[in-house]
Nucleic acid binder design. Sequence first.
DNA 1: ACCTGAACACCGTTCAAGT
DNA 2: ACCTGAACACCGTTCAAGT
Lengths: 238, 238
Amino acid sequence: MDASPSSDAGDEVAGETAEADHVFARPVKPGRVTTDLSQAAIVQACIKLLDEQGSNALTMRKVAGKLGVHATSLYWYVKRREDLIDLSLDEILRTAVERSATPGSWREEISETATQMHNALASHPWAPGFAATRPLLGPNALEIFRRIVTSLASTGAPAETQTQAAATISDFILGSATAAASAHAAGLDTPTSPLAQLVTRQAARAGSPLPGATHWEPSFDFGIDVLLDGLALRLEIA
Amino acid sequence: MDASPSSDAGDEVAGETAEADHVFARPVKPGRVTTDLSQAAIVQACIKLLDEQGSNALTMRKVAGKLGVHATSLYWYVKRREDLIDLSLDEILRTAVERSATPGSWREEISETATQMHNALASHPWAPGFAATRPLLGPNALEIFRRIVTSLASTGAPAETQTQAAATISDFILGSATAAASAHAAGLDTPTSPLAQLVTRQAARAGSPLPGATHWEPSFDFGIDVLLDGLALRLEIA
DNA sequence: ACCTGAACACCGTTCAAGT
DNA sequence: ACCTGAACACCGTTCAAGT
């Protein structure tokens, strides 16, 4: 992982002026000297654990166990459990960043970037749930938003409209991945699961077709297209 | 609260065919006979606690404490901690359901329903985070989705398009409330907070204007309008 | 510099027991 | 029917101590 090691030095002094206490605000521990353990290795273990056992399995002791080390050792590389979440979230967004964007119209570019972010989140069922608790502020998240805003800038729309448009896009990506993840976590992605059947019966009885968390068909592609249609109306003056 | 006590009887037999084990799937405990405690009272205490102290304060012992009772007593009314979450989430959606929808065009109706749901979620900062973990399946959530789909039905669009449209709308509502809540939880809603300043500096250095979780201006109104614009293009044939 | 070990103040949940 | 009390197997985190 490595939070782009150059970027967060700069002003490490000024006494103690109430700096924000957040992983991405702290300088990363200098490279290991004697050991195998590192923040990067811890984050890898953490992601693997989450992929295998779900978000409830994220405990300091279990992560440490995967590395053959005691829970308290992790605190040398990380200040608290939440850091593990923030770092893991940003790490899975790396895959979205690495596929470099192919240039095109603003619609094509945003559609591609949004899809990559959505895929990154959706392929780790634990991710959206954590993203709802912890804002995405890591370097990879910032890079994704930078791309979106850059694409929007080419429309020449007013700055405030661009900001709102970017927020709307990011909100939809997050919401879509979230709905898919919580449905999946509850076993609603297969229509034959007991809960899915219950919901269907209940909904039928109430005259309600399908609740939001129950659309087993992924709706991201449809939704992003609709959203971009709507944005085109505001962004393209001509 | 009371999960519409009539609705979940029906087929309480068939042996034990792996019924879904979910609060809204279980018959609600018959009314209290001797005591003050009840599922409704517990949920009220739970919501109050969450409003006052945030999502981390949701422990069985603290909820029980608010009611002057031991933690283990709650298990008479509720099977597990997650039930408290599911019940509290659906309870806060009640306010959205109670303001009965004023009839109008499909756009007006959906816009109103969506805004009500968004407001319900956004006025309880803990709610979106939980909604990302637990799908919204309670009677009030179902009623909201029923209204959205009913409004969509009047467009005469194909059924599948309606379903996808409903999912897209619900995804956006959830995402928008989620982004606002996680920004709020991290102290990003006031531009003067230490973390907000850090993000701004970092973003400036990286050439990235503003990450998604950092739009301090609520973007829901803009977003829902854009989304409905886009939907109008697909739903209105004429 | 890095890791261990013990310790503290919590958790959710089960279950026998009381009334 | 409803609540208590004790107990179990966990938690995150701090901190002194080792090397």
